[in-house]
Design a binder for these strands. Sequence first.
DNA 1: TTTGAAACTGTTTAGAG
DNA 2: CTCTAAACAGTTTCAAA
Lengths: 147, 147
Amino acid sequence: MSTPIDDIDRVLLEHLARDGRMTNNALAAAAGIAPSTCLGRVRGLVERGVIRGFHADIDPAALGRDLQAMVAVRLHAEARRHLAEFGAQMRGLAEVENVYFIAGADDYLIHVATADSSGLRDFVLDNLSAHPAVARTETILIFEHVR
Amino acid sequence: MSTPIDDIDRVLLEHLARDGRMTNNALAAAAGIAPSTCLGRVRGLVERGVIRGFHADIDPAALGRDLQAMVAVRLHAEARRHLAEFGAQMRGLAEVENVYFIAGADDYLIHVATADSSGLRDFVLDNLSAHPAVARTETILIFEHVR
DNA sequence: TTTGAAACTGTTTAGAG
DNA sequence: CTCTAAACAGTTTCAAA
């Protein structure tokens, strides 16, 4: 990490986390710096990987994906050598919202959003139960997810 | 839900989910519509709640929050009447990244990011174990989180 | 709803401290 | 690293279809 994050950076990050589309001018004003300085700092934060990206937060239900679940996945002991590979595969699936690689009895928590219960069943059967690395799954329904 | 989401909306959402800072002009070109039309559609999507917001994705580790955990929380049977209230409280805490209100033995999964293990311990003790509504907690470390 | 074009606002570069 | 100021690009409004 080249430059340490100072108080001004922290202000910028706080604002951009809340409103990722805040204009550079408004952001500069909020941080008490010139727009050009602000621009340079935000660029630096992106380059250094502090800001990983800017994303629209889309309501899955509005896209017809009304059902969310957290699926705990345990892999076979032999498959643990390819843990990262499994995570990358999961991340690539349309239904997958978040992938948590965890410590404990299970190896992954996979947050998925599907159209309905049969979509969820199909996702678990086709992508998890049928996966050669998967030893067991446990599906927990999500009533609500915030943030 | 006033207007249904059409194919053009889907293109806009897909692009904005990937890059929330894409310019309106580029977005319009990608969707094959005029910039002014694009602007109106994106506004509509925000007003209708399809787009819930735009956010910068900040690396917690860059902010000195190197440790992440998923804390499963079970509330007392009597406290279940105030479930939503508990969730709202959790969401307001700085360490809290995601709150999942779930079905099953536990009521919540709380994704937290703290500086280190003592920060995690303090979070769980001060905000969860000490909370009058909380019956039990189980803390699972997160090695990696994607998306 | 859609659009093109004008008016406007915000972004970005360059140069200097 | 910071700023001011000018040039540039992108956004937004609006009248018309």
